[in-house]
Amino acid sequence: MHHVHLRRAAGALVLTLAMTAGCGSTGSAGQQASTGAGADQSAAATRVFAADNGEVTIPADPKRVVATGYAVPSLIEADAALVGISSWRRGLPMMSDEDRATYDRLEKIAGETAAETNYEAIAKAKPDLIVIGVPAPAMADLDMDRLKSIAPVVAIGPTVPSAWRELSQRQSDAAGRSVNFGEAKAAYEKKAGELAAKYKDALSSLKFGHVGAYGEIAGGTFQREFAGSWGTNIATDIGVSYYGEVKKKGGNAADVTEYPSIEELNESLGEADAITYTVQADGKPNEAVQYVLDSKLWKSLPAVKAGKAFPIRYTEAATYASAMKTLDAIDQALAPLLAQ
């Protein structure tokens, strides 16, 4: 469930995302918990993990993992020992063929929202760890006591959009796949660095603005995203500079995005030298973005008149592997700057 929709329905997110690599494992990962006489000590090894729901004792090497929400793509990519997942339709266009095959194969134990959790299906999957990756407001729709009766539960949910980096790291760590996470992170950083060098001169003097995909036509608003939001945080990694900030910070996602009226388009984006805007995986804008593009005020913006408005695909990437597609899309979109 997209964080913007949750924000509108339940208010600003209230999680505080732990930023420390290693994700709060305390004590020895070799801390043992015997399961009876003759039990395999290594199979019973546990550790204490610092999750959003407190310190939780989990298996050191989980063998049967259930994942929901934002934990789904990160744990598929990390090759975690998954036995059940929630659906994650918003991320399907960004999955590799191999990851999509894994997604399709796995048992769906929940729908797109936390309220669509199937507790019987989770119990039937016999997990030894449940990783909940939903925003704080959605946690109210979960029966945590029931989940805890099935297996240890760690909640690792999103705050600001750019925090997917730490979020996916913590989720991978909980599932015992930190090494796999590190490989994906290194590949992303290498590619982002190469693009930063490629566009350094072209981007150095430009101030960017961004139009996101979640404005409301009925309310006559558009979504302005600032640095750290979905549409901007990956572009920032290659040197794109987004100017300004929200007029009134509301905490978490509301710190990096706002919803001005369409009449405020010039006031909001008039200082931009260039503008990026979110489009769907097929390259087409959704209705909310098309509403902005069709506005006479849009056509009068200096950046648009100068031919510096660039559509960006895959702006909702929430893992390093999926963000590689976003980097490719940004490279493709900004290529005309190299010829100017």
Rank of each mutant, 00 (worst) to 15 (best):
S34T: 14
M139S: 00
G182W: 04
G36H: 00
L167Q: 09
T20S: 08
R165G: 12
T159M: 04
G215V: 14
A303V: 07
P152D: 08
T46S: 11
A44P: 03
A80Q: 00
T16E: 06
D273P: 11
S87N: 14
A329V: 08
E287Y: 10
A50V: 09
V240M: 11
A174N: 07
A101Q: 01
R7I: 11
A33V: 09
A254R: 02
T319E: 02
T326I: 06
P158M: 01
D201V: 04
G54T: 02
G215P: 08
G250S: 07
G84N: 00
A71L: 03
E116F: 02
G11R: 00
G38Q: 03
V246W: 03
G30P: 07
F49C: 03
L293Q: 05
R47K: 14
G38K: 03
V83E: 04
A9Y: 00
G91H: 11
R64V: 11
G307R: 07
S205M: 05
A71G: 11
V160C: 09
W298P: 10
P161G: 03
E264G: 11
L92S: 05
G307M: 06
G22M: 03
I85K: 01
A213Q: 09
Y243Q: 15
A110L: 00
N286V: 15
Y277A: 10
S86K: 00
A317D: 05
T20K: 07
V4Y: 09
F226P: 12
N286A: 09
G212A: 10
K108A: 02
L92I: 11
D273I: 11
I275T: 05
A67C: 06
L265R: 01
Y242M: 12
A192M: 01
Q332K: 13
S149P: 05
L338C: 10
A303N: 01
E107H: 05
V304D: 09
T236C: 04
P73T: 14
Q169P: 07
T57Y: 00
A9P: 00
D128G: 02
A81T: 11
G209S: 06
G193V: 09
E183F: 07
A197N: 03
P127C: 01
K296W: 09
A50I: 06
D273L: 10
S96D: 05
E245G: 13
A45K: 14
D97F: 05
I238H: 06
P285I: 13
G182E: 02
E263S: 15
T221D: 03
S162W: 14
A318R: 10
A29N: 13
A78W: 02
T257I: 12
P161R: 02
D328R: 08
A321E: 13
D79H: 15
C23I: 09
V246L: 07
Y119I: 14
A37S: 11
G111A: 08
S74T: 10
G215D: 05
A37G: 13
T46V: 13
A192Q: 03
I330A: 06
A274R: 07
I109R: 01
Q41P: 14
L301H: 09
A235Q: 08
A218Y: 01
A202E: 00
D52M: 11
Q223L: 12
V83K: 04
E183C: 10
V179T: 15
S268Q: 10
P158N: 04
L206S: 05
K207N: 13
S205R: 12
V153K: 02
C23P: 04
P73E: 04
V48L: 10
A33D: 06
D173N: 14
D99L: 11
A12C: 10
Y320Q: 03
K207M: 10
V65M: 01
G215L: 06
K296G: 15
